[in-house]
Write a protein that binds this DNA or RNA. Sequence first.
DNA 1: GTCTATATGTGGATAGAC
DNA 2: GTCTATCCACATATAGAC
Lengths: 223, 223
Amino acid sequence: MDTQEHPSAPPAGQQRLGAQERLVRSTQELLWERGYVGTSPKAILERAGVGQGSMYHHFSGKSDLALAAIRRTAEDMKAAAEECLAAPGTAYDRVAAYLLRERRVLRGCPIGRMTQDRDVVRSAELRAPLDEMFGWLQERIAEVLTEGVRGGELAAGLDPEAVAATVAAVVQGGYVLARAADDTAPFDAAVRGVLALLASQATGSAPGPAPAAPGPAQAPHGR
Amino acid sequence: MDTQEHPSAPPAGQQRLGAQERLVRSTQELLWERGYVGTSPKAILERAGVGQGSMYHHFSGKSDLALAAIRRTAEDMKAAAEECLAAPGTAYDRVAAYLLRERRVLRGCPIGRMTQDRDVVRSAELRAPLDEMFGWLQERIAEVLTEGVRGGELAAGLDPEAVAATVAAVVQGGYVLARAADDTAPFDAAVRGVLALLASQATGSAPGPAPAAPGPAQAPHGR
DNA sequence: GTCTATATGTGGATAGAC
DNA sequence: GTCTATCCACATATAGAC
């Protein structure tokens, strides 16, 4: 018989993980749903199914735990974006893959959301993962666009850094518009718009197949 | 001699206003700075320089006061945007004026920020002003672009609704990127990018002067 | 109308037992 | 390592005096 006598709350889907890992994952979820100020240690503990002592043993406090969660989320997002941007195809195709990838639009971006949280932005430590993630994203998109320009697929006058920032901004702003409307339509429209503008930068004399005008962008968005 | 005997805290800049108006303005500021969850009645009262009784006399509670503040802010934003979009000039010029207008980028958008607040988005009443404001904005930009297409200034293939959503998203997303970086540069880059893409939609055979390639977008952004 | 006093819950963390 | 008990401050609202 085990000495462990407290399966108090089986945290639905994290049964076989250690307390530390459960704490990080629960925090990731709550930060996404409620933001930093809106997330209390109590809520984290309940979701993770552990007691307070457990949390303060592994982490120095709320901000320390949030730091671990934010870092984890940023890494996850980076990996998801890289999967689209590193795919085979033209530069347009790869940027389109990133823009059209399946997203639960109405939930918003777990990293972008942190940006609206005063306590996060004011802490150099908590802000660092956001800065690093978005910096990387813009550079990576710019790289793809630069390849497109060098390969003759995209117009030589295109400014890769500026358009990369535009692409990243459209996604983040699309979330904002969609949440205001409680409808994914504005997100889809914004993506469609920037893709149409980008498509018109295709030279048509590219090595690869020229991108067709983007369709209605019927990405399978969840709620 | 006046019976009023409590100039307890002169609320810096709102001296001559009634308590109700001071409460609304203080709430507008605090919602912008800290969001809905991060704003306590106590903080509002302190900034407004009034007591609790005063607040609960004019408003039923925090959410009621927030509603008044959000409505006010949405109206203000609408007026500011209309000023740019209704200006004389080509469609490109008017959209550019909106995108390049002076903004305190690192503070973010007071309306867009509400979008990240769970309690706001989940309340139909609190979300309504956001929905209405962003809906109006996108329609208004689309109108301007439609005029540009009809007048032959912009390419006939341009989709005004989609590009309008893109423009609105670039602004909102630009705020997110800038706050993550604690630097206005990503905002400026995103705006520069979308303007360059839009400029390439100009036919060059327009009635008005064809827009020059957008410059470095040295808008006088404050911190 | 506006103020102060009071009430109840929660936020975030510490102490110390097992 | 993990739990429970305890602590103080604050969030939000009500009651009632002036």
